[in-house]
Design a protein around this nucleic acid. Structure first.
Lengths: 266, 266
DNA sequence: GGCCCACTGTGTCCTAGATTGCAGAACTCT
DNA sequence: AGAGTTCTGCAATCTAGGACACAGTGGGCC
C-alpha cells in the first residue's frame, strides 16, 4: 500500500490516478502534460492518501483554497530565504528536495513524483528547516496556506494519526539511508537506491521492466557521490546486465541481482 | 525547551529530575544508583514530556502498568529476534540504539539518556523495524505494552500531535545527519556530533564546561568512522584546545571553536 | 538537416580514511 | 596490591572515491 519510496520530505508517493499515462518517457510528453492540466477543475487532493479521511465537503473547500501554481525546470519552490509557509501538493512534474553545504555541494534528500505532499514540517510546527525544493521539470504544485492547514487539519484527530504514520515511515527510511551511507560502499548504495527509486517510479503496463528517469548526475546527488563515480558504477552494472542504460533513464533489468549487490560489502 | 539531541529512535531527552546527581562521572556511581531506584514507588512517566498532557489518573494507571526492568551493561533490550512489542521509557542508565550491516559493522543511531522514550515506532504501527537497543551501562527501563499504549494514547488527540512533533524533530535531525555524513569530512562531523551530544548531556551545576561521557569507540560508532580515525581527530581537537580528554569522557572547552570547525569543509 | 549542449565514458592523480598491528596507560575487580 | 581488561595513541600501508580534464555522442531545437 504505502510506497516505500526514498522520499523524506514528503512521504506518500501514491500516484495520482491520472498523472502518468502508460507511455513511458515518450518524447514530447513534457510539453503537453503540465500545461494542459493547469486549468483543469479537478482536485489536487483526491488522489493523495493523506487527505483520504476528509469529508467531501472539506476536500472541496480545501481544494478551492489550494491554487495550482506552475514552476519551471530549475525554479525553487522554497529555500532558506523563502521559508516554508504552506503545505505543498505536487500535481504534475517532479520536485527535488535537497540540502546545501557551505562549499556549495548538495545532497538531494528526495525526488518527488506526482501525488506527493511536501513542506510537511509546517504541520509539526518546525520553523528553522533548511531544505530547498526545486522543480526538476516543469511542474504544477498546489499550496495550502498555513492558516487553512491549521483549521482543517489539526482539528481532525484522524489527520494527526496519519501525519504520525507518515513521519514514522520517513524516520525509518532515513535511518536506513544513514546506515547505508555510513557502512556501505558506493556500489551497494547505488543498487539499493535504484531499487527504491524503481518502485516509486511510474510503471508501464506493457513492460515488466521499470525505468528510472534520472541522469547520472541526479542519481549522484541522491547517493552523495560524484557524477563520475556514479557513471562508473552504472557502467559496471550495465556490464553485469543488471541494468540497461539510456540517456537520462536507467532500466532495471535484473532486480534480484541488484538486490544482491546492494547487500555486498565490497 | 526540547533538547535537540542526537536521539533518533527516541526524541525528548528531557532529564528526569532526580536521575543524575551533581557528581559527574564519579567512580562507583553505577553500582549504587540503578539498583537503589528500582523499588522506588515514583512514576517512570512524570518527567517525560510526551506524557505531560495525561491526567494524573491516567498517569497513575499507566505507571502501574509499566514495570521497571533492569538491564545490565551490554544486554539487548530489543533486536531482530525480539521485535518491539512495547513502548520503553529509560529511567536510569544509558541505551544505545543501533543498526547492523551484513559484515557486522554497526552504526549507532542514538544514545539515550534518562527520560528518553524509545521503541516509538510501535506508536505508528511500523512492524518491520530493524534497530537494536543495547544497554551501555546497567539501566532500568519501564515498558508499556502495546495494548496499554493503544488504550491510553491513541485515543488522546493531544497525544497524536505530540507524537507528530516528536517524529518531525527526528526527521529534521536525521536529514541533517545524513547530509553531514555525505558531504562533510570526519573532523567537521565530529565537532558537530560533540556539540549535539553536549547539550543532550547531563550538565553539572558547578562547572560551565560540559562533559560527554563516551569512549572514542562509542563516538566512532555514532560518526560512522573507525576508532582510530576518531582518536586522531580527538587528539587534533585537544591540541587545538577545543576539548580536553579523559578516559571515557570528553570535556568541551571551546564550543564556538567546535562550531566553527563543524562548518569547515576540510 | 545541422548545430549545440546536456549526458556520458574514461583516464590520471591524490587525499581522507580504513586496516593492521602494537604498546603503554588507566581503570576495575578480587 | 596485583592482574586483567579497556581505552587511547601511534605508525605503516592500502584503497575507494574525489578532483580534474577531456572526448565522444545522442537528441532537442532552429
Amino acid at each position: 500500500m504505502t510506497t516505500p519510496g526514498l522520499n523524506a520530505a514528503c512521504s506518500t508517493t501514491i500516484m495520482s490516478a491520472a498523472s502518468k499515462p502508460t507511455t513511458l518517457w515518450a518524447p514530447h510528453e513534457r510539453e503537453k502534460e503540465p500545461l494542459a492540466e493547469t486549468g483543469e477543475p479537478f482536485s489536487c487532493l483526491y488522489a493523495v492518501e493523506l487527505f483520504a479521511d476528509l469529508t467531501a465537503e472539506d476536500m472541496d473547500t480545501l481544494d478551492r483554497m489550494a491554487p495550482p501554481r506552475l514552476f519551471h525546470s530549475g525554479e525553487l519552490i522554497f529555500s532558506q530565504s523563502q521559508p516554508i509557509k504552506a503545505l505543498f501538493i505536487l500535481k504534475a512534474g517532479r520536485i527535488r528536495i535537497f540540502r546545501v553545504a557551505e562549499d556549495g555541494k548538495t545532497l538531494t534528500i528526495a525526488i518527488l513524483e506526482p501525488g506527493a505532499v511536501f513542506g510537511e514540517m509546517l504541520l509539526v510546527g518546525l520553523q528553522m528547516y533548511d531544505n530547498y525544493a526545486e522543480a526538476l521539470e516543469t511542474s504544477t504544485v498546489c499550496q495550502l496556506s498555513a492558516a487553512d492547514v491549521e483549521n482543517h487539519f489539526l482539528s481532525n484527530p484522524k489527520m494527526a494519526v496519519k501525519i504520525s504514520r507518515l513521519l514514522g515511515e520517513q524516520v525509518a527510511r532515513l535511518e536506513e539511508r544513514l546506515t547505508d551511507m555510513a557502512l556501505r560502499p558506493l556500489s551497494a548504495r547505488t543498487a539499493a537506491t535504484l531499487l527504491t527509486l524503481a518502485d516509486a517510479a511510474p510503471r508501464s503496463r506493457f513492460t515488466h521492466s521499470v525505468a528510472v528517469k534520472l541522469t547520472h548526475e541526479q542519481l549522484a546527488g541522491l547517493l552523495g557521490a560524484t557524477r563520475e563515480a556514479t557513471s562508473k558504477t552504472m557502467s559496471d552494472f550495465a556490464a553485469k546486465k543488471l541494468i540497461k542504460q539510456g540517456r537520462g533513464r536507467i532500466i532495471i533489468e535484473d532486480a534480484v541481482g541488484l538486490r544482491r549487490t546492494s547487500r555486498t560489502t565490497f
